[in-house]
Every structure is written in structure tokens, then in C-alpha cells.
């Protein structure tokens, strides 16, 4: 056996564990979704028959899916820009050499350690229409179908803020002090320095965060489930929420197809973000 072959064999052997995990937990379920989407179950869920691809078209253009998608897309618009802006503001505020600044950095990043459930319970107490501290604020009232999604979005923004803050802060700290000083000596004040130097130099970080936050938002489920159970009148039924609700023993196809639709959309959105933003993003040397 040549050295080259032996090296290759060792390499593949080392890849086996991760390949097994990938196939078992990712690839196989994906294939199963297709299979379930192509079959219809009987009343007891004990047998299935092939119904074909036409069902994909029906489900993906159906009201359930499009309405869920509309709500999820709105949710993305509510959470991602606000989350990014707040994260950048906090990180810029905390990125200075002051005594005790670590305390603030720790506080600002603390939501990273909270789960969706914790965040939702916190906001449940704040926003609950009966007992909440902010129940009188109409703008994100959970009892009004027009505003309930904003309330849910708020809890997501809060919960993701720690992550955004930590990552943006790391991005800011990677900018050499001299570059900012050079801009000062070139005659730029703090605000212009931010837009001229800081923002372009953290653009790769922001691009990464934008992709991640969009994916998080498209996957939102627990927030809505805990805060509103999808209500009022379905106003906070995100796509994942609808997928979860549609999955029953006698119908495993609809949810599967919707899940595949969400997968495809997430994939496309992420690709589009990379392609569009890539051109505007500066990656340093």
C-alpha cells in the first residue's frame, strides 16, 4: 500500500464519526421529510400510500404555508434590523477603556446565557395583557392581532442581544486603534469616523450576524408558543409554529413539505445575503 493510499484511508477513518452523525441526524431526516411528503397516511396513521409530487405544489402555495411565511418574514423584519442596530450601539458604547467597563460588558452580554424559554417567561411577565408591567403599551400589546407579533419579536431581540453584542464587540476590538486615530487626525469627528471607518471594518461581522439572525427569526417557535400560543387569532403563528401544529399521526405529509419549504427558503435567503452583501463587505488582510 502506498503512503498516499494509507494517508487517505486514515483520513477517511477519522471522518467516519462525523459522517455517521451527519447522515443519521441530518441527511436521513431530510430524506424522510421527502418520503413523508410523498405519502399519505390512513386514518390511524398505520399505513401510507404514494401520492406523488403534486402535493408539494398544493401545500407550498396553500394558505397555511403562505400565511406562516408572511408572519415569519414580518418577524424577520421586526427582529433583525432592530437587533443589529441595538447590538452595535451597545457594543460601541461599551468598547472603551473605562474603569469597570467589564461590568457593563458582562451585563450587556448576559442574555447569551438565557434560553428562549427564560426570555419568553420574562417577557410574559412584562407584556401579559392582564398582569404585565407594559400591558398598557399599545404598540406591542399581545392582545391585539395587529401588534402581538411585535411583542413576541421584542423578546427575541432581547434574547439575541447578548450574542450580537459580544460578536460586534469582538469585531470592534479587532480594529487597530491607529486607524481610528488616523481618521481623527484627518479631521473626522466621532460620528463620521463611525460611518467612515468603524462600520466598513466591522461589516464582515455584521454580515455574519445578519445571516445568523435571519435564520434564528425564520426558526422562531418557542417565543410565540409561550407568549401567545400563536394567537390572538393566529397572528403570531410563525411558519415553524404552523409546521408543528400540522404534524399529526394521520397527516405527516403537510408539515414535512412545509418544513422542506422553510429549509429551501432559508437556504436561498442565506445564499442571497452572502452574494449581495459580499460585494459590499470588506474583508481585511
Amino acid at each position: 500500500m502506498s503512503r498516499r493510499t494509507r494517508d487517505a484511508l486514515v483520513g477517511y477513518a477519522l471522518l467516519v464519526p462525523s459522517a455517521v452523525i451527519f447522515v443519521w441526524f441530518f441527511f436521513y431526516p431530510l430524506v424522510r421529510l421527502f418520503v413523508m411528503g410523498l405519502h399519505q397516511q390512513n386514518r390511524t396513521g398505520t399505513a401510507e400510500r404514494y401520492v406523488g409530487w403534486s402535493r408539494f405544489g398544493d401545500v407550498l402555495t396553500g394558505e397555511q404555508f403562505t400565511e406562516g411565511l408572511r408572519i415569519s418574514a414580518t418577524y424577520v423584519l421586526y427582529t433583525v434590523p432592530l437587533g443589529l442596530v441595538l447590538g452595535v450601539l451597545l457594543a460601541v458604547a461599551a468598547n472603551r477603556r473605562l474603569k469597570g467597563i467589564k461590568v457593563f460588558q458582562t451585563i450587556f452580554s448576559s442574555t447569551i446565557a438565557s434560553s428562549v424559554a427564560v426570555a419568553s417567561v420574562v417577557f410574559f411577565v412584562l407584556l401579559n395583557p392582564q398582569i404585565g408591567y407594559f400591558s398598557s403599551v399599545k404598540f406591542f400589546s399581545l392582545s391585539d392581532p395587529d401588534t402581538a407579533l411585535r411583542g413576541v419579536a421584542l423578546s427575541s431581540v432581547w434574547q439575541n442581544l447578548g450574542l450580537t453584542f459580544v460578536i460586534v464587540l469582538a469585531g470592534l476590538q479587532a480594529i487597530p486603534d491607529e486607524v481610528d486615530e488616523a481618521a481623527t487626525l484627518d479631521g473626522y469627528g466621532p460620528v463620521r469616523r463611525f460611518f467612515r471607518v468603524t462600520l466598513p471594518l466591522i461589516s464582515p461581522t455584521l454580515m455574519f450576524l445578519a445571516v445568523v439572525l435571519v435564520i434564528f427569526a425564520l426558526q422562531a417557535f418557542a417565543q410565540a408558543d409561550i407568549l401567545t400560543q400563536g394567537g390572538p387569532v393566529g397572528a403570531t403563528e410563525t411558519l415553524v409554529f404552523k409546521i408543528f401544529r400540522s404534524q399529526q399521526p394521520i397527516d405527516q405529509g403537510t408539515g414535512s413539505i412545509m418544513a422542506l419549504g422553510l429549509f429551501g427558503i432559508t437556504l436561498l435567503v442565506s445564499l442571497a445575503q452572502f452574494l449581495l452583501l459580499e460585494r459590499r463587505v470588506h474583508y481585511g488582510n
Binding site: 491607529e178 486615530e181 481618521a183 473626522y188 463620521r192 467612515r196 470588506h282 481585511g284 488582510n285
Partner: peptide, 27 residues
Amino acid sequence: IAMVFQSYALYPHMTVARNIESPLVAR
């Protein structure tokens, strides 16, 4: 005042032309 830094402190996202132009824009 103009300063040349040890690390040069050029703006990595700008072309040479825009780097040189920088002190002329705000003042």
C-alpha cells in the same frame, strides 16, 4: 497636523486614492 504611524494605519477598505484623499474631505 498630519501623522505617519508606525503601522501606517491605512484604511484597509479604501483604495490608495481614497486613503490619500481622506484628510481633504472633512476639513
